[in-house]
């Protein structure tokens, strides 16, 4: 009962902030609304009994990625006038591609039959112990391959960042 109310409050917060990301005029407000949206999604994870996922979501997205976003936007100091006057052709292209994407989403959702969802409170998969067991026993190889991918991405980023080394 109580968690149902929470679900609605958090959902409204998530949808509102996601909309405000698009609507707000200043880029910096958009970034902050996106951060708010991530917090709302983390709240949903907690309601689904996935505390570990929720906290990692906040650490990685709100704590690292969005800070870097904010950083970039602040340093570039994007002006409102310059950035929101786009040529008409680009506006048309944006509307058409957006509509096509919307159609695609509807098509995907229509053909997808919702699988039987297990009650997350019963499976306890979101708790760190169970998640660790699954990751390091059943899905060890994919997990390690993913970490190698991340390492490669990190090395690549450093290479791009260093201009004087070829």
């Amino acid at each position: 009962m109580f968690s149902e109310y929470l679900f609605f409050i958090i959902s409204i917060a998530a949808i509102y902030s996601a909309l405000m990301v698009l609507i707000s005029k200043k880029p910096i407000h958009s970034v902050l609304y996106l951060t708010l949206c991530f917090f709302a999604i983390a709240g949903h994870y907690i309601l689904l009994n996935a505390q570990f996922l929720a906290v990692v979501h906040i650490i990685v997205y709100a704590g690292a990625i969005m800070v870097l976003f904010l950083f970039t936007v602040m340093l570039l100091n994007l002006n409102i006038e310059n950035d929101f006057k786009k040529p008409r052709l680009i506006k048309f292209a944006a509307v058409i591609s957006g509509s096509i994407f919307f159609l695609l989403m509807i098509a995907v959702l229509k053909s997808y039959d919702i699988a039987i969802v297990q009650n997350p409170a019963l499976t306890q998969i979101g708790l760190v112990k169970n998640l660790g067991n699954v990751l390091f026993k059943d899905y060890l190889l994919p997990f390690e391959i993913t970490s190698i991918l991340f390492l490669a991405a990190m090395v690549g980023a450093v290479m791009i960042g260093k201009k004087d080394i070829y």
Binding site: F52, V55, V56, I58, I59, A62, G63, A64, V67
Partner: peptide, 11 residues
């Protein structure tokens, strides 16, 4: 991890 989340939001 909660403490870390709070620290990372502190900025």
């Amino acid at each position: 991890l909660y403490v870390f989340a709070i620290i990372s939001v502190g900025v």
